[in-house]
Design a protein around this nucleic acid. Sequence first.
RNA 1: GGGCGAUUGGCUCAGUGGUAGAGCGCUCGCUUCACACGCGAGAGGUCACUGGUUCGAACCCAGUAUCGCCCACCA
Length: 864
Amino acid sequence: MSAPTSLPAVSTSPKVPDKPSLDGVEAKWSGAWEDKGTYRFDRSKTREQVFSIDTPPPTVSGSLHVGHVFSYTHTDCMARYKRMRGFEVFYPMGWDDNGLPTERRVQNYYGVRCDPSLPYDADFEPPEKPDAKNQIPISRRNFVELCERLTVEDEKAFEELWRRMGLSVDWTQTYQTIDRNAQRTSQLAFLRNLARGEAYQSEAPTLWDVTFRTAVAQAELEDREREGAYHRIGFPVTSQDDANRVFIETTRPELLAACVALVAHPEDERYQPLFGSTVRTPAFDVEVPVVAHALADPEKGSGIAMICTFGDLTDVTWWRELQLPTRPIIGWDGRVIRETPSWIQTPAAQGFYERIAGATAFTAKERMVEILNETGHIEGEPKPIMHPVKFFEKGDKPLEIVTTRQWYITNGGREPELREQLLARGRELIWHPDHMKVRYENWVEGLNGDWLISRQRFFGVPLPVWYRLDSDGNPDYDTPLIPSEDQLPIDPSSDVPEGFTDDQRGKPNGYMGDPDVMDTWATSSLSPQIAGGWERDPDLWSRVYPMDVRPQAHEIIRTWLFSSVVRAHLEDDCLPWSNAAISGWILDPDRKKMSKSKGNVVTPMGLLDEYSSDAVRYWAASGRPGTDTAFDIGQMKIGRRLAIKILNASKFVLSMGVVNDVSAIDQPLDLSMLASLREVVRLATDAFESYNYARALELAETFFWTFTDDYVELVKERAYGGQGEDAADSARAALVLALSVQLRLFAPFLPFTTEEVWSWMHDDDSSIHRAAWPTLDELDIAAAGEPRVLERTGQALSGVRKAKSDAKASMKAEVSEATVEGTPADVEFVSQARADLAAAGSIAELILVPGSDDAPLSVRASLA
RNA sequence: GGGCGAUUGGCUCAGUGGUAGAGCGCUCGCUUCACACGCGAGAGGUCACUGGUUCGAACCCAGUAUCGCCCACCA
């Protein structure tokens, strides 16, 4: 922080409107800030002079939500504070438009669907009247073009909201997670990962969403409670004696044909005799071994379970560690594979299989139960249970596990050493609030595999590789063809690898492009690199990276935050930012998380119209970091009242006559007020330094109401000149100094109101948002001031008001005689503002009586 | 099952070792020359519960309860 901060002198002829108002301030000042480039990033500043923010790119295909207003306001308050502290703030804005949400919207909006096998049609136009039932198949490139067309509209709506709210972002620094820069950055980072051996392909059991027909990463899972039922199924121990059975209990009888073993705990005495022997699956009559593994829980079901390929992640563990065969029966569409598997050999068994072939998992379950009832291998009625089932967070059918070839990036899920390094990164990061780091640690410690980044989708960044085809047309996945860095970004479905020609695509001895795209987090995890100019603008990169802060919500610590740490650690061996500022959620008045599906979302624009941007920002800024906050119209009304009060108080102060000479301040009451303000400046600065904007606001607000209710009332008569010009000048100088300081304390929160007042009191066109944050030095004159002079005199004034209130009299009613009694010290403090108290209370005769050392301050007043 | 957070007046929330705080709402007043988009005054709480540490606990420690969230191998 070396940039000089400006503090222009207050105009002695301020332009104060007769009737100050909030109407129109948003349009007036957002326009002026844009014209003047108030928030434009000055890239002549060095890294030490810069405060850089890794702004969360909102998902533009979602609707505008008060939650957006909430968390983005927090970041903006920090940005404005840092800017006033003299930092050059790098505050870009991104749009997250890549990924499934946009795909779904485009399909419905234009009535199309993506078929990657189709060629690009440069002249394609979507139908005038989209038919969602008969979607037109189009090429990936056409589909992506439509995604881009639609997101442009969505992004405009977001930008309009952000500008209206007064976010101080630099609108020349924007990016989209699907734009060329983002594509190039994520492909380049991927190729670097590949070159270092951090990205690899693997054919492995993969969590699979049958609706979207794509692989899903661990981070995208969520558990949902679903009804299920235990079915008790008997496995014949020998082929000769069908009655000698071992019983398992399963919720997924439809996977019986995929059973490869039974498993029990090694120390389970009931099953120890069976270990090493085989049993036969009922109906399908397949011989499977009985094995032992510590993960089998003797308490669960009958204590012995069937292992299928694959019913759940435990099956995968058993399959891997016990080296069992693979016998999948669920296909990519979530249905039982039609072709009868080779391991089902007897004609009867094949007949049973044909009855479930082609069925969904749900139907297959019903039919399998029928079959087992017919063969008599099921015992008793199913026992209903509620149990957690894994879902893709955006899907609505349970995930299956299928074996596919996918791309992975190492994230510590398989290597203890890397995991430990990433845990250390989590400890190195400064979390706001601190306890959020536990979520990171929980997540990293619970990883059970590397990061699966390939997705079988269309609107995303393509994996930038091709594969050679051999003379039979089979791809060689082991040595992918890689583009040079200067070719990026590429789309391997239309671009041609070096050394090949376009007509060799898909031909024997030719090549094929990788059909997959990257996970949206594989791009989002690079937001600092995308916005900061990594490998694109080295000069910018050197001034902003590693960044200062990543603001984000707590539910995406495991995804966005963690994956960003992984990328920076692997690429640059550093943290991507030094601080993580975690915001809470907006809760509706029933304390449930607000969400679109619950139908309790309030549109933000309506709130801004009704209460003003500053009022809504006030509500947002009173939500403490990391704390879930109730949606509260009441707080917005209070914010509006505060903003209007600031306008009116400013009008009063400026109409008293501006005295810029600090040395004119010599009255004890004035010095007392400024001494309190000095302490407020100190505390608010400390609060901001620890990212506690809410505390800084509270401090400024509390002081402000004391300032208007007590100080201004006490000093009014003197400022008008009632006690002579010198005494008046002390008040006038103190008033204008206090106003200037308070406006700047409020500026991060109420940018429109404070800028409006700032413009009245300055003849140049300077902005408060480029003015210096208040310092203790400015208030040096009050360093020895005694805060209790104002405090005690204010209490005495309250006592006088109470007397009038009790008498149901007007506040301007004359008091013939008032007696203030208290400790000798308190009476002494009041005596220092005696004339002001007498004037403010319309007291003809004011008597001060020192009492005992524990006497409470009391007032007796006789009304005239 | 493991963990994190919360629990303060009717409501929304501050406070973090020394006599319970704010705003809203409520009650009662006031057309006070910055403000009726206002101003003043007032009522209202054994700080979830039980122990402990301490001269002293809303605050520190241990435990309990309720709520929210994160994580965990879904037989």
